[in-house]
Amino acid sequence: MKIFVCVKQVPDAKDVRLDPKTNTLAREGVESIMNPYDRHALEEAVAIKEKLGGTVTVVTMGPPQAEAVLRESIACGADEGVLISDRAFAGADTWATSYTLAKAVETLGGFDLILCGKQAIDGDTAQVGPGLAYRLNLPYAACVQKTRQVSAEAIEVERMMDDGYDVLRLPLPALLTVVKDINEPRVASLKGKMKAKKAEIHQLSAADIGADPQCIGLAGSPTQVVRVFSPEPRGDRQIFSGSVDEQVDQLVACLKAHL
């Protein structure tokens, strides 16, 4: 079975801050890590490979330094890493990103399953996985919490819902986005780290994947971030005390006073 895993290098959440001049996330001096949800996608791919055989190819779109998450993936059991990197990709929103990833996957060719994390912790949109499935015309399931059965023809999974879970059976090839409940990611072994250090990382540019210049980066992004800011702290606040019923009565009275 040939499995692709899409991962992303993101700023460590504990160090995230805004640049007051550019109104964007400040990345200078901030440690970059593999998106936590993507770790679980990688682990699930490696676990399936260990059961059924095959290969795991990890794909990431980003600047040259994103190569680090590919080597980390190889250290944890992936077979190869592909870096999709080009200045033309800068400023891409989720629409342009899913287009770029789709073109890269089509260029690499021949897959049975694509796994993605549910969402990236820097954007929190959860749109790229479903968008990639749409671009590739694949059946997909989002928020998968368990893989029940996998064969060469189909995969059966549990999809997390607010009131429990759904059981879905998808024909392959297909795409899944996974949540953290699905597994516990492994720690890279010394042998894996040595393999990752020596591994050749394949790089693809916009020209290599045959991308339309009008569909990538800022040019291909119908949405753009105009401004990012922290909400101003509000000084007027009121604390209700007493029993729950008393607090409800106080809240109702407060709301009525402002009508």
Rank of each mutant, 00 (worst) to 15 (best):
A66T: 05
L175F: 07
D86A: 12
G235Q: 14
V144S: 04
L83S: 10
L176W: 11
D124T: 08
V167L: 07
E156P: 00
A75H: 09
D166M: 06
T57I: 14
S221W: 05
V252K: 10
K180T: 10
A45T: 03
A141D: 13
V10T: 01
C76S: 15
P130G: 00
A78Y: 13
A88Y: 03
D236I: 09
L25W: 14
N183Q: 01
A92Q: 09
I114V: 12
G220M: 06
I155M: 03
Q250M: 13
D245P: 01
R227N: 07
K146C: 02
M194L: 14
L204N: 03
Q250L: 15
P171I: 10
L251A: 12
G117K: 02
A207P: 01
K49Q: 13
G53L: 05
D163K: 09
Y37K: 03
E80D: 14
R169E: 09
I84D: 01
G129R: 03
L138R: 10
V59Q: 11
Y134T: 15
T60Y: 01
P222N: 01
R234Y: 15
Y37Q: 06
S221C: 07
D12L: 13
P233S: 09
A257G: 08
E232F: 03
T107C: 15
A152F: 06
I33C: 04
G54H: 02
Q65H: 15
D86K: 05
G164A: 05
R39G: 12
I33P: 12
A68C: 04
S151N: 14
A174P: 00
V144C: 07
P213Q: 09
G53C: 08
G210L: 05
A45W: 05
M61R: 10
K193W: 02
F4N: 00
D79L: 07
K14R: 12
V178C: 05
V5Y: 09
Q214D: 08
Y37N: 10
A126M: 04
N183G: 06
K256P: 06
L101G: 09
F240D: 07
V58M: 04
K198H: 10
T22H: 00
V58Q: 04
E200G: 06
E200H: 02
A75S: 11
I239W: 06
V16P: 00
I201E: 08
E246V: 00
P233I: 00
R135C: 09
Q9M: 08
L25Y: 11
S230M: 11
A199G: 02
F240V: 04
K118H: 12
K51P: 00
S151T: 12
V10P: 12
F4R: 03
L170T: 00
G129E: 04
V226F: 02
T147C: 11
T147Q: 11
L115D: 08
V105A: 11
V226L: 14
K197H: 15
Q250R: 06
L190P: 00
E43S: 01
R186W: 05
T100M: 01
L170P: 10
T100K: 00
L168W: 00
G110S: 06
E153W: 09
T125N: 07
S230A: 11
A142T: 10
D112V: 04
R227E: 15
R186M: 06
N35V: 12
V228L: 14
V248M: 10
D112E: 14
E106Q: 15
C116P: 07
I84F: 15
I3H: 08
A174K: 03
H202I: 11
D212G: 11
T107G: 11
G242R: 05
G77R: 14
D12A: 07
D86R: 08
T22A: 05
V5T: 00
